[in-house]
Amino acid sequence: MPKSQRTPAGDALTNLVLDLFRLNSLLLTAGDRLVAKLGLTSARWQILGAIVDAERPQPVAWLARDLGANRQNVQRIVNDLHAEGLVAFETNPHHRRAQLVVLTDKGRRAFDAAMALQMPWVNSLSEGLSVKDLQTVHRIVAALRTKLESETEGHT
């Protein structure tokens, strides 16, 4: 049986994907360490960021979609954030059962504190990397994400 049926691009993409898996794990661990003293985790910080980035309050299902995450996992984290007073729920005029998730003042302060920690960390991490190279990687990752999202939508 042949060792590999992949094209050279397929081999290169496989290597990139494996490195991205490792990078994701390292980023989550680093993020957890960075925001631990704020009572956050990478996952909680990510949800707060999605709420901040949204143009208007959204239900959990939309936040999960925007994050490319499992709705049940996002709901669990949102419930934890709610219990800690970092988010609140508002009535959704378009859907009675799907409440809107909004940041509280305490949640905004926690998010802002996390971002204040992130700035020097990310600036240090980016030292020695060219902006052009980072932009190229970003375009490639975005293109792969778009392809995968369109494949996923075709199977639902």
Rank of each mutant, 00 (worst) to 15 (best):
P2Q: 15
S4A: 11
Q5H: 15
R6T: 09
R6V: 05
P8T: 14
D11R: 05
L13I: 07
L13Y: 01
L16K: 08
L18D: 01
D19I: 10
L20Q: 12
F21V: 13
F21C: 07
R22D: 09
L23F: 14
L23T: 15
L23A: 10
N24F: 03
L28S: 14
T29G: 09
T29M: 04
A30C: 05
V35N: 00
V35C: 10
L38E: 10
G39K: 09
G39Q: 13
G39E: 09
L40R: 08
L40G: 09
L40N: 11
R44L: 07
Q46R: 12
I47G: 01
L48S: 07
G49S: 05
G49D: 00
I51C: 15
V52N: 11
E55G: 12
R56G: 02
P57H: 04
Q58E: 08
P59Q: 01
A61I: 00
L63G: 14
L63R: 03
L63N: 02
L63T: 06
A64D: 04
R65W: 02
R65D: 01
L67P: 01
L67M: 15
L67V: 11
G68R: 09
G68A: 12
A69K: 14
N70V: 03
R71G: 02
Q72I: 14
N73C: 05
Q75F: 05
Q75G: 05
N79K: 10
D80T: 05
L81V: 00
L81A: 00
H82M: 07
A83V: 00
A83F: 03
E84L: 03
E84Y: 01
V87T: 15
F89Y: 15
E90T: 01
N92Y: 08
H94F: 08
H94D: 15
H95G: 13
R96K: 06
R96H: 09
R97W: 13
R97G: 07
Q99G: 05
Q99T: 04
Q99W: 05
Q99Y: 03
L100M: 00
L100K: 06
L103P: 01
L103G: 14
T104I: 04
D105S: 05
D105V: 06
D105C: 02
G107T: 02
R108L: 12
R108M: 12
A110H: 10
D112M: 09
D112K: 06
D112I: 06
A113N: 09
A113M: 04
A114G: 06
M115I: 08
A116I: 01
L117T: 02
W121G: 00
V122A: 15
V122T: 09
V122W: 02
L125D: 13
L125E: 15
S126L: 10
S126I: 03
E127K: 03
G128R: 03
G128Q: 01
S130T: 14
S130R: 00
S130A: 07
V131Q: 13
D133A: 14
L134T: 06
T136G: 06
T136P: 01
V137H: 10
V137F: 13
H138P: 02
V141R: 11
A143S: 13
A143E: 03
A143G: 10
R145S: 08
T146F: 04
K147W: 10
L148Q: 11
L148G: 13
E149M: 12
S150Q: 13
E151I: 14
E151P: 08
T152I: 05
E153S: 12
H155S: 15
T156G: 15
T156K: 14
